[in-house]
Simulated assay, not measured.
Amino acid sequence: MVLAAVLTAPNHPVELQQLPEPVLEKGGIILQTIYSEICGTDVHLFRGHLEGVPYPIIPGHFSVGRVVDVGGKITDIKGQPVQTGSIVTFLDVNETCNNCWYCLVAKTSTRCPQRKVYGVTYSSTEGLLGGWSQLIYLKPGVKVLTLPEEVTPTRFIAGGCALPTALHAVDRAQIQIGDLVAVQGCGPVGLSVAILALLSGAGRVIVIDKYESRLTVAKSFGVDDAIAIDDQAPQQHIDRVLELTNGRGVDVTIEATGVPIAIKQGIAMTRDGGRYVVVGHYTNTGEIWLNPHLEINLKHIDIRGTWGIDFSHFYRMIELLKRHRHQNREIPWELFISRFYRLEEINQALADVEKGLVLKAAIQPNPF
């Protein structure tokens, strides 16, 4: 039997359950979990904000582990053999069909109707298909990557799901050298966006958040300006962005808050002819009113959504973590992790993430 943390229903405490070990199929892989994580998606799952979730589930969609058994000869995307003892990670997105209109014509596999996600759309009754467990079963066809020596399990989970999500958002933003960039929200996704904007050659990167602790971390990564939101003066941070940009606004704004009013505020701080990218609204948090003439058409602004990731973002994340760990190119990704939690502490970890008490909570299901 295997110990796993199971979310039985929305707004119910996560339960520790003993579940059967997986039955290995040809092409399957069994991992001993080294790390998983808790992110905003897991809070949404806990609160029941996502549709179509087959509770009970084992959450944890980004994980890294050690191979303990392999169902036959398996190689990763680079052709490296996946064998017992290998340290690997895997794309949480699975069963994308590559046979529908979205996959083949629109080239938008994140909208494939067959797409499933570990830790989100698999029930615990189907097996150990989430990272909050001592073992994870990788079904045949799951896309696996062996971690390079330069990327430790800790470094990988520090990037977590936020880093490839941020990569996708920055791709959508088409940041150019010298662009002025504002990032709304300084959680793991927003902070990752800010770092990637700096690496993309942005002329100035401004981050905005209500938590001073997150702004402090952002400053340590080299952002140019960190602006705190004052609930008593909701226009103040917009005015400050305009002040820093000679009244025009930034070239690019990327929203990573999940707060509806942030959309209206973000458009206001984006220059005419600029680009506004929404990545933070992974669930339905409500509506806002926009004036199509004043806020979209007259501004001649591009508004772009970002949904999920595909394998390219996952692969590039690993390459990014690998490159930016050498001397003279060091980015201390590990600073994202505020605390490591055991499975027995999972409800405390969820509460800490929901309250903004930690930047990133890493889960360590097995004692090492």
Rank of each mutant, 00 (worst) to 15 (best):
T108V: 02
L91S: 13
V82R: 04
I267Q: 04
A361I: 04
I57N: 07
H326Q: 12
L50V: 11
L50T: 05
Q327I: 13
E319A: 14
L294E: 15
V6P: 05
V205S: 06
E150V: 04
F62V: 14
E255H: 05
L167F: 11
A194P: 05
R323C: 05
I136W: 09
Q348P: 00
V93N: 12
I261P: 01
E295H: 11
V142N: 07
V82L: 09
L31A: 13
N328V: 10
K139V: 12
I87D: 10
L138D: 08
R339V: 00
A194Y: 01
A202G: 09
T270W: 11
G305Y: 06
I177E: 12
H324K: 01
E295G: 04
S109F: 00
I301M: 10
V142E: 03
R304S: 08
G190R: 00
Q18S: 14
Q114K: 12
L298Y: 13
V277S: 03
T283G: 11
V68K: 13
E212A: 14
I30F: 07
K107C: 05
L359K: 01
T33P: 08
G185F: 04
T125L: 11
D171Q: 12
P59V: 07
K299G: 09
T110Q: 14
S86C: 15
M1K: 08
I296R: 01
G266L: 10
